Amino acid sequence: MQASATATSRANSVISIGKNYLGTPYQFGAKAGQTNTFDCSSFTQYVFKRVGVNLPRTSKNQAHVGSYVSRSNLRTGDLVFFLNPGKPGVINHVAIYMGNGNLLQTYGAGGVRITNIHSGTWSSRYMTARRVL
């Protein structure tokens, strides 16, 4: 039970820290550790590092850390990975699962935002998820 409570507390911290950056502009290839712009994986890397979890720099590499989680068992703080449209099997995006189908992520105009996994093309592009907390 203690490990679960700790993981839940850390997951809530990840979401809270990430929400501080809502609206921060998206920049592909943003430098690791900077907070004036993020790309999807620099955002997840930065936020998780703040709670003591070191992640690789790219979404493709982040998809190999932690443990596999099925889509039906997603929990707050899980990393969710998405395919590149037109390139089957190629991961090109990562988001943080917030619960209730919501994702904390950054991409394109608007930067860091909360979106629903069932909106737009996210559901059809879903590839896998990993638990790192």
Rank of each mutant, 00 (worst) to 15 (best):
120 G>K: 06
54 N>E: 14
121 T>M: 04
18 G>T: 00
41 S>F: 05
58 T>R: 14
9 S>I: 00
6 T>E: 14
76 T>A: 12
115 T>P: 04
4 S>Y: 14
87 K>D: 13
74 L>H: 03
12 N>C: 05
64 H>K: 15
66 G>Q: 09
73 N>R: 05
102 N>Y: 10
40 C>Q: 05
85 P>A: 06
26 Y>P: 00
133 L>N: 09
60 K>P: 06
66 G>D: 06
3 A>N: 14
59 S>D: 04
55 L>H: 10
124 S>D: 10
121 T>N: 15
22 L>F: 00
58 T>Y: 13
40 C>P: 04
47 V>N: 11
121 T>Y: 06
59 S>C: 04
68 Y>D: 12
70 S>C: 10
18 G>D: 01
87 K>R: 13
49 K>D: 01
7 A>N: 13
27 Q>R: 15
28 F>T: 11
30 A>K: 09
118 H>A: 03
1 M>Y: 15
72 S>G: 09
24 T>H: 13
11 A>T: 02
51 V>A: 08
20 N>M: 14
115 T>R: 03
53 V>S: 10
107 Y>E: 13
112 V>A: 02
95 A>M: 05
56 P>Y: 09
18 G>P: 01
103 L>G: 02
75 R>E: 15
53 V>T: 00
64 H>T: 15
58 T>I: 11
92 N>H: 08
50 R>M: 14
54 N>Y: 07
3 A>T: 13
47 V>E: 07
27 Q>H: 14
125 R>H: 14
132 V>S: 11
78 D>W: 10
4 S>A: 15
132 V>T: 01
79 L>A: 09
87 K>Y: 08
55 L>G: 06
7 A>Y: 11
20 N>Q: 14
104 L>A: 02
115 T>Y: 07
16 S>C: 14
57 R>T: 02
55 L>T: 05
69 V>W: 10
131 R>I: 04
14 V>K: 04
73 N>F: 01
111 G>L: 06
13 S>Q: 07
10 R>H: 13
35 T>N: 14
120 G>C: 03
4 S>V: 15
114 I>F: 02
62 Q>L: 04
111 G>V: 04
130 R>A: 05
86 G>P: 12
65 V>N: 12
24 T>K: 01
99 G>N: 12
42 S>N: 12
17 I>P: 02
101 G>N: 05
78 D>Q: 12
75 R>V: 12
